[in-house]
Amino acid sequence: MVTITTWNINSVRLRMPIVEQFLKENAPDVLCLQEIKCQEQQFPYKAFAELGYEHAVVHGQKGYHGVATVSRIPMQEFSRHDWQDNGEARHVGVEFPSLDGLVLENVYIPAGGDIPDREKNAKFGQKLDFLGRMTHWAEAIDRPTLLVGDFNVAPLECDVYDHKALLKVVSHTPLEVETLGLLQGAHEWVDLGRKHIPAPERNYSWWSYRTYWQGKDRGRRLDHMWASPDLAAQSRGHTIAEHTRDWEKPSDHVPLTTEFDL
């Protein structure tokens, strides 16, 4: 079995204590991080190596965004795409030679600002264009691939705490849901979160810092793990470490982990 975790950590250096706690308690084989907020030379390689994660592929930038994949299993960098088309560090792909060449794509899709109108809000247009470029890329995938990360879209009605209230809120608008659906259809991606936790079961991965997360439970499912159909057939379980949202100095996102029979 191989276990793979994805987590928007919201600053890896600031939250290294809870990363260490999670890794000691759960020991996934691979950890994909988004929003690491550091340059590649600032990444805590030594801390991860001491925890058994000697392999690391990092795409970082100063103070913002950034993605990293760390692993116990040997891997090599496979791809870096600039789907934002502005040089931001939002993607890195790795390949695992010992796992029949499995490709793992780690992505941080833009949040899209506050106004769901590309004419009034350039960030919203950039998010839609980012997804469009990803869709074009996905059409050409020809090998087993796992796509994980912070997608910043909660696609299903049951993926948010109040569907009607959030229809005009960025992350759950019909246009974003439709655009994400085109990406999913481009490779017939299987949504592992909903394969193992079928709708309408509760399945959130993000709670705002602005509200008491557990009391009001205003969650959204913004983080996802999607697999090529053949790879999805090998998934055996999917868990959400919701309790980490209550740890000291937590991220506003929680880790998702999928277990594969590889």
Rank of each mutant, 00 (worst) to 15 (best):
E188W: 01
R194D: 09
N203M: 07
A186N: 09
K216D: 14
L222G: 14
L183M: 04
T179I: 08
L192T: 05
L192S: 06
R202E: 15
M225W: 15
P200Y: 07
H224I: 09
E178S: 09
E178M: 00
L180D: 05
M225K: 10
V177F: 03
H187Y: 15
W207E: 10
W213F: 11
E201I: 00
S208L: 12
W206I: 09
A199D: 13
K195F: 05
L180I: 02
S208R: 07
Y212Q: 15
D217P: 00
W226N: 09
E188M: 07
W213Q: 15
P200T: 00
H196M: 03
E178Q: 09
W206A: 02
P198D: 14
V190T: 11
G215V: 02
R202Q: 06
N203G: 04
V177C: 09
A199P: 13
Y212T: 15
H196K: 12
D223W: 08
T211I: 06
Y209P: 13
W207S: 12
P198V: 12
R218M: 08
D217Y: 00
H196N: 12
W226V: 11
D217W: 03
R202S: 10
H187F: 14
K195G: 06
T211S: 15
L180W: 00
R221C: 01
K216V: 12
V190S: 07
R210N: 13
P200D: 01
G215Q: 11
K216T: 14
S205H: 04
T179Y: 04
Q214A: 13
L180A: 05
E188V: 02
P198I: 08
S205V: 05
G219N: 00
Y209E: 13
P200W: 10
E178Y: 03
R220D: 03
M225V: 15
I197G: 06
W213P: 06
L192M: 11
R218I: 08
G181H: 05
M225P: 12
V190K: 08
A186C: 09
M225E: 15
L180V: 06
G193W: 06
L180G: 05
L180N: 02
H196E: 13
Y204W: 01
G185D: 07
R221N: 03
G219T: 02
D223I: 02
S205L: 01
R202V: 11
K195P: 07
K216P: 07
D217L: 04
R221F: 00
L180T: 01
R218N: 08
L222Q: 13
W213K: 14
D223F: 08
D191K: 01
W206T: 03
Y209W: 11
G193C: 10
E188N: 15
W226E: 11
E188T: 09
G181K: 04
T211D: 12
E178F: 01
G181W: 01
H187T: 05
Y209S: 13
Q214Y: 02
A186W: 03
M225H: 06
Q214C: 02
Y204N: 03
K216G: 06
R202G: 00
R194L: 06
H224Q: 14
I197N: 13
K216R: 10
R210L: 10
R220Q: 06
G215L: 13
R202M: 12
I197S: 04
R210S: 14
